[in-house]
């Protein structure tokens, strides 16, 4: 059902955790399944220097959070903001049809955390 890359990220997810005094923070839920994700950003000079998350969700949600945070780390706010679920899915090498919404949760969390960062400035 899942490819090896998805399973690898699921088994050993990167960037898991929380952050004290983040520069941006958001908690989002999937309207489809009710699963949730919290995301924390550290931003220096418009660049995401650190990123952490906690995810309650399926295999696809955990793998998506892992790879999306890998992708966002080191990017500028504008670059990270432009990331979509299709980028995440592509990077994962594909997800089953019914699991597309799980990657959307990662996209939403990242966008919401960036919005929070912007609103604090």
């Amino acid at each position: 059902m899942y490819n090896d890359k998805v399973l690898e990220h699921f088994k050993n997810p990167h960037n898991v955790g929380e952050m004290e005094n983040p520069d941006g923070y958001a908690e989002v839920g999937s309207s489809e399944c009710g699963d949730t994700m919290k995301m924390y950003l550290r931003v220096d000079d418009n660049i995401i220097t650190d990123i952490k998350y906690k995810t309650y969700g399926c295999c696809a949600a955990i793998a998506s959070s892992s790879i999306a945070t890998d992708m966002a780390k080191g990017r500028t706010i504008e670059e990270a903001e432009a990331m979509t679920k299709s980028d995440i899915i592509k990077e994962l090498g594909g997800l089953p049809e019914k699991k597309i919404h799980c990657s959307l949760m990662a996209e939403d969390a990242l966008k919401a955390a960036i919005n929070d960062y912007k609103s604090r400035k």
Partner: peptide, 28 residues
């Protein structure tokens, strides 16, 4: 814990269990 995540993890460890019934798993 989300059941499917636990199920897939156990599968990677060689243990086969199920969430819901076999006919409906794969749905969210």
């Amino acid at each position: 814990i989300e059941g499917e995540a636990l199920m897939i993890h156990l599968d990677l460890e060689g243990i086969a269990v199920s969430t819901g019934s076999a006919c409906t798993s794969g749905s969210t």
